[in-house]
Design a binder for these strands. Structure first.
Lengths: 217, 217, 217, 217
DNA sequence: AATGAATGAGCGTTCATTCAT
DNA sequence: TATGAATGAACGCTCATTCAT
């Protein structure tokens, strides 16, 4: 636990924490990390700076809690896909959901902030990678269900390619991005591409393994 | 020209401009826009703050000049691909080059900064879109040379998908990213995917057109 | 209330506000608005710049609070003249008091600062005009008591002439001004002039009305 | 000679000096001394800062030259009144001219700047007093021509009162001031007041003499 | 648990001035 | 003469953080 938590039940403290995190999230999305300050969060939350710092003793701690919360939301969304439908339908549903989510202001703005912060902060880099790890495993699982001939490493490689491709669309078809109108067509093309790869692609099968952690703060 | 240029006979000024831009670039890459300040640029360049502001009268102007310069380098690199080889080979060369470039520290860090800044600054958004526009047209041209049956809109759609997919890899196989070792495999998978789409994909053919400019500062 | 006020139970804050305003007033009188800076006020008050800006979040707000305070002092002084003596004696007392006040360093320096600031700042212009308005009405009231045959507009006109004449002496008989020694004689001449005008002058009687507000920032 | 002068005839240098002084005057009137900077003068004059500083090596020198020039214009205007008409008409003409001049933007703004600067700068105080000295002597001369029974000191005292009264009107009936519409009535009242004082006033006749110079920088 | 108060550092920017060319 | 180049100080302001209450 890296930041203050209140006793169980919806105590006053927990409400404040939620209030603060909501304000912080709004500010981050609206103005970017570059304009993210304790004062602005406090003002937006209608709380004094002193009180904000009682719950989140430093800016880093607040940011960390915020990212944890936001990322957890995405992870929860991933979980909902598990085992609901036939593998192929499930896969299609994931792709469609992700590409549609990308179009929301929240996602369009949040992820580039996350990516840039991760490049300069080891801790953020770690929680980001953890999130993408779970996401990737989910996709890899579905892939192997669609085509059980693929070994684990092949599925993982496909999963990396697929998730990377999807993330990349953020900057082209996201909220107020120049090709936002092409989102449906991108779903179409993506699905063709990904399903063909899964079913007929010649995926490298050699051993796989994550790189050692080499990031520095 | 949006920033001071040296008068002729005063080559000292031109040198300083280069010196400053190099320091600024270094700082942006090393520390992110969040830590990008006039003072730090001046210190890194070994120049007084006053002198820095003599050449770049505002932080915005400096940033603009820096992005112009960096982006121009990428545009110049794109140009070198034009018409050098047979279409398919050219395409392969582009994909390989881009995915290898992504692995450099410079590219891995610069683009996420650009993406996040573009979400909060209309002007940056514009120069970014202009850059990607030229990139996309280049790729679309090669695509139509590979498969002349595709109409302009189909080529454009494929180009959007391909460039988006490539950009997305930045955060997974880039410099010190967890899957950096998988870069070669991603080249392999990407090429299979993209070439199959170009040659056998069922690409939506309806009319296309860029979204109106809806970004706000 | 345009600037921070101390919450109850925190009288420390009120003391600081007074301390700061006193330092600010001193600085304005000693050095002029031209040399009036937040840093200098903070230093003079023995307070950190950050703390000064905690109470007065901008230079404008500080200046406004300062002018409000100083002007209020003059307004309070005006009020003390009301109805204390017979009209003519009251008038004589006002003229004498004003012309003597003009000789203090504070008044000699403050008003020219105010006049010049008012020419470049609409807000200052407004609070200055409001002050002179009350002053003028006070004088006009006494004038009509001395000579009830004068209508309201005639009294107002006399009041404008008289108050203007008095203010003008600031630059000639004020603190360290070349004719400071002539102050008593100026009181003598002023009284003769003003009383003759009130009692025997042929004052234009046509309708009167303040000009519309045409000042611009 | 306190600032660079060029060889006689309208050499390039003299033109530049005039150009610079005109720009400086405009800036002072439009923005006040508070916003008066070498850079802004240079920009307004279309001249480099370096060149501006060649002609006026410091801000003080420029300001001094500017005040000298502007004040000289007023002195020249005073001279034109001398001996043109019968004494009383001459006096009336002076009052009318001064009160009308007060209504121009230039005069309304310039003099309060001058008064406030004079309070903080001994040198400015001196040149201002010199100007008012000549003005006062002119008025005193006319007064004695109207009523030769007055001795020199009485005329001087009247002159102080009259000139002070006129100057005071700047802040009430000047350019964009609230009582600008009452200017004609103020001329009427002033003339009655002043002429009655000259012809029938009981003016203190004791010895007179300017105060010693006590101003400090 | 919550706020007011206070600090000190850093920010982008403007400026008067100096100097080489 | 005239400009470009460069400095260092000061400006108003925002900020993360600390502390007393």
């Amino acid at each position: 636990m890296t930041y203050k938590t209140a006793a169980k039940g919806y105590s006053k403290g927990e409400k404040r924490i939620k209030l603060i995190l909501a304000a912080a999230e709004q500010l981050l999305i609206d103005s970017g990390y570059h304009n993210f300050s304790m004062r602005k969060v406090a003002t937006k939350a209608g709380v004094s700076v002193g009180n904000l710092q009682y719950y989140f003793p430093s800016k880093d701690k607040l940011l960390e809690a915020l990212l944890d919360k936001v990322i957890q939301n995405y992870l929860d969304a991933f979980e909902k896909f598990r085992g609901q439908y036939a593998p192929k339908e499930q896969f299609i549903k994931i792709i469609k959901t992700v590409l549609k989510d990308i179009k929301t202001k929240h996602t369009t703005v949040f992820f580039p902030e996350l990516w840039s912060m991760a490049n300069h902060d080891k801790h953020i880099s770690k929680i980001m990678d953890r999130m993408y790890g779970k996401y990737r495993v989910l996709v890899a699982d579905v892939i192997r269900e669609i085509n059980p001939k693929l070994n684990e490493c092949q599925a993982q490689r496909l999963s990396i390619f697929i998730t990377a491709s999807l993330e990349g669309h953020t900057i082209f078809i996201g909220y107020r991005k120049p090709w936002a109108k092409e989102a449906e067509n991108m779903i179409d093309i993506s699905l063709q591409s990904f399903l063909w790869l899964i079913e007929h692609g010649d995926i490298p099968a050699g051993e796989c393994g994550k790189s050692p952690d080499t990031n520095t703060k």
